[in-house]
């Protein structure tokens, strides 16, 4: 194989693997920028993968190739709903946000597999979907040698993810909504004083978070795996969380980190093709995102600091 083709494939695979991470990391960003810790990204992705697959399954006979889009929208709504208990617990009832997140992660795997077994007569996974997203070949651009295959022959969800990065950046840093969101996460009391409804901002942020993370999960089910099972997501929510921190809670940073972690996964298949597993154990590649995140947090590779009020309950009465 020629190197151009190999690198082209690598970029192509990287984008495929990164898409779900970008969605989920962006989701995490909204919640954490508003001051609510979200370690439930994993669970939200699981719910998204599940609902995405189930909606697509029931829609595919009557809607054909439109079905995965219905699945994606379904996942988006289900994710927002699934995030609501986290918001209720951590914002209204001032529960520990980490514990509530742990509970949601648990609930997601339990509930989704339980429902899968009920819907699919006891099978642990959904039947293979007939209709999933197919790759777009962008006219003209996809004819460019190497680069065409690398970038312009991707799944529609990948382009949506990149568009959402730009949109999130604009929303966060160029609109009053973004300013309010950040204010609520950095200094809720000051935000409250100038008339921002802290609780409402946080509820909105957590629900956006659930919607986006669920879209990420649906992306996995509707592009790479074509079904939902208990190990469809398997830890990618935590990689997304790592990407968010690695990317310093910034949309572009999170995207960069997600792409970087995506490379790690894409290289894995490359390593296997070339029989390099002897020299580079796949486990080491799997570990990489987590090790790097710890190093970043420890300040070995740049510093990453969280929103100031992250994880702190806002109580209107306290000072």
């Amino acid at each position: 194989m020629d190197w151009g083709v190999i690198i082209g494939n690598l970029i192509h695979d990287t984008i495929v693997f990164s898409t779900a991470l970008i969605f989920a990391a962006l989701g995490g960003m909204y919640s954490e920028r508003s001051g609510v810790v979200n370690i439930a990204l994993e669970g939200m992705m699981v719910i998204g993968a599940f609902t995405g697959a189930v909606f697509t399954f029931f829609a595919q006979d009557s809607f054909g190739s439109l079905a995965p889009w219905i699945g994606l929208v379904g996942a988006c709504i289900a994710g927002a709903l699934f995030a609501t208990p986290h918001a209720v617990a951590s914002i209204t009832f001032k529960a520990d946000q980490v514990v509530s997140g742990v509970a949601l992660n648990f609930l997601a795997t339990g509930l989704s597999v339980y429902l899968t077994k009920i819907i699919f007569n006891g099978a642990g996974q959904t039947t293979t979907l007939q209709q999933v997203f197919s790759k777009w070949h962008i006219p003209v651009l996809s004819d460019i040698p190497i680069l065409g295959h690398a970038i312009f022959e991707g799944y529609p969800t990948s382009y949506i993810a990149f568009a959402l990065v730009a949109l999130s950046w604009y929303l966060l840093f160029k609109t009053s909504f973004g300013l309010r969101l950040r204010a609520v996460g950095e200094h809720p009391r000051a935000a409250d004083t100038v008339g921002i409804n802290v609780k409402r901002m946080r509820y909105t942020a957590v629900m956006i978070s659930g919607a986006l993370a669920a879209m990420g999960g649906a992306t996995i089910a509707l592009t790479t795996t074509s079904n939902f099972s208990h190990n469809t997501v398997s830890g990618q929510g935590f990689i997304a969380l790592a990407a968010l921190i690695f990317g310093k809670w910034h949309p572009a940073g999170a995207m960069g980190a997600a792409l970087f972690f995506g490379v790690a996964q894409a290289i894995k298949s490359l390593v296997q093709i070339f029989g390099l597993t002897k020299y580079v154990p796949t486990e080491v590649i799997f570990m990489l995102p987590y090790i790097l995140t710890i190093l970043v947090l420890a300040g070995v590779v740049g510093r990453s600091s969280a929103p100031a009020a992250l994880g702190k309950v806002y109580d209107t009465g306290s000072r």
Partner: peptide, 9 residues
């Protein structure tokens, strides 16, 4: 777990 965490509920 959820109900213990959100003992307000």
């Amino acid at each position: 777990i959820f109900f213990v965490a959100a003992h307000g509920i």
